[in-house]
C-alpha cells in the first residue's frame, strides 16, 4: 500500500462560539492531492472547519495541521498554502470586480504585470470579463460566486478550499468550476469542497466526510459510504418458475437481508449488489428458475446523506418509529 501524506490533519478539533458548540472533537485527515468532499446539513460545522483551516477562526481546543503547520501557532505560514472561495462572497459594495481580483492577485504574490494577465485569464475563463467594471453590489448572486472562484483560480494555492461553490450558479458555470477543481488537482493542489449538492460530490470528490452536529458522521470513498448502508443496493430479477423455488434459493444467501416477491419479480435489498446479483442468478438457474431480466440499482448519495444525517436525526428525536432492519428509502 502506498504511503499517503496528509495535506490537512485535524486533531480533536473543537470550536465553540459562546455556548454554541459548532465543531465537537473532529478528527480527520485529508490526503495530499485528493479532491475531498465535506458534506453535512446546515449548521453541521462544515464552514467553521473550513474557516479554521484557513486560519480565519482559531480552534477552541485541538489543532489543525496544514502541510504539517499548526493553524494555532503558525498561522502566517499556513496562509501561504491556503486559498479559499467563501460561501458568501466577501467584498465591499463599492469595489469593482476587476479591482477586487487585481488586488487579490497582488496580495497573493503576483507582480503588477503578471497580476493583470492572470486576472484577465481567470475572468475570461469564468465569463466575468464583461462584468469587470461593475461594482460588487451590481453583481448577481451567481456572478458574486464566480468572483470567489476566480480568486482561487488566480491564486492556485497548494490547498484550495471551496465552500459551497456551486450554490446559485448556472449549469455552465458549474461545469466550468468542476474543470477548475480538476485542473487544480492535476497541478498538484489538494482541494476541499464543502457542498450540499450530492451530484456534485459524487461527480468530483474522491473521498467524502459527512459532518453532523459538529461531529464526523461518516468518512470514505463514495463506494465505501454506499456500501455502509445496510441493504443499500436493490437487485430486481424478473423470472419464470416456481415462487417456492425462488424463496428456497434466496434463503440460501445470507447476504440478502430482505426481499419481496411479487408479479414474478424478486426484489432483494443487499450490499454490493452487482457482485451478489450474479450469485442469485446462478442459484436461481441451478434451481430451474428461468431468469428473464436483471436490474441492479445502487443507492444514490442522497440516500447516503439521509442515512448518515436525516435518519439519525429522526432516530434521536424519536419522532418516527423506525424499522431498523429496513433501508431508509424503502420505508
Amino acid at each position: 500500500m502506498l504511503a499517503v501524506s496528509a495535506a490537512v490533519k485535524i486533531v480533536d478539533f473543537v470550536k465553540k462560539f459562546g455556548d454554541t458548540v459548532a465543531v465537537d472533537g473532529l478528527n480527520l485527515e485529508i490526503y495530499e492531492g485528493e479532491i475531498f468532499g465535506l458534506l453535512g446539513p446546515n449548521g453541521s460545522g462544515k464552514s467553521t472547519t473550513l474557516l479554521t483551516i484557513a486560519t480565519v477562526y482559531k480552534p477552541t481546543s485541538g489543532d489543525i495541521y496544514v502541510f504539517g503547520r499548526s493553524v494555532t501557532r503558525e498561522g502566517d505560514e499556513v496562509r501561504k498554502y491556503v486559498g479559499i472561495a467563501f460561501q458568501e462572497p466577501k467584498a465591499m459594495w463599492v469595489d469593482t470586480l476587476y479591482e477586487l481580483l487585481l488586488w487579490h492577485a497582488r496580495v497573493v504574490g503576483y507582480s503588477s504585470a503578471e497580476a493583470k494577465s492572470a486576472v484577465r485569464d481567470a475572468m475570461e475563463r469564468l465569463n466575468l470579463w464583461e462584468h469587470r467594471g461593475k461594482q460588487f453590489y451590481q453583481l448577481s448572486g451567481g456572478t458574486r460566486k464566480k468572483l470567489e472562484i476566480a480568486k482561487v483560480l488566480i491564486q492556485r494555492p497548494r490547498l484550495a478550499i471551496f465552500d459551497e461553490p456551486t450554490a446559485q450558479v448556472d449549469v455552465i458555470t458549474k461545469h466550468a468550476l468542476w474543470d477548475v477543481i480538476r485542473e487544480l488537482r492535476q497541478e498538484g493542489s489538494t482541494v476541499i469542497v464543502a457542498t450540499n449538492d450530492m451530484f456534485e460530490a459524487e461527480r468530483i470528490c474522491e473521498r467524502l466526510a459527512i459532518m453532523y452536529r459538529g461531529r464526523l458522521g461518516a468518512l470514505g470513498t463514495v463506494r465505501e459510504l454506499k456500501d455502509r448502508i445496510p441493504g443499500g443496493d436493490v437487485v430486481e430479477i424478473g423470472y419464470e418458475g416456481s415462487r417456492e423455488e425462488v424463496e428456497r434459493a434466496v434463503s440460501r444467501l445470507p447476504s440478502v437481508g430482505r426481499y419481496v416477491l411479487e408479479d414474478n419479480r424478486l426484489i432483494a435489498y443487499l450490499n454490493r449488489g452487482e457482485e451478489k446479483a450474479a450469485e442469485i442468478v446462478s442459484l436461481l438457474t441451478s434451481a430451474g428458475v428461468k431468469v428473464k431480466r436483471i436490474m441492479v440499482q445502487e443507492p444514490t448519495l442522497d440516500d447516503v446523506f439521509f442515512y448518515f444525517t436525516g435518519a439519525r436525526l429522526r432516530e434521536e428525536n424519536q419522532d418516527v418509529a423506525l424499522n431498523r432492519g429496513a433501508t431508509p428509502w424503502a420505508r
Partner: peptide
Amino acid sequence: RREVHHYLLSLPAPR
C-alpha cells in the same frame, strides 16, 4: 458586518 475581514484574514499576509 459583512464578514469581509474573513477574506482579509485568509490572505497570505501577517496580521
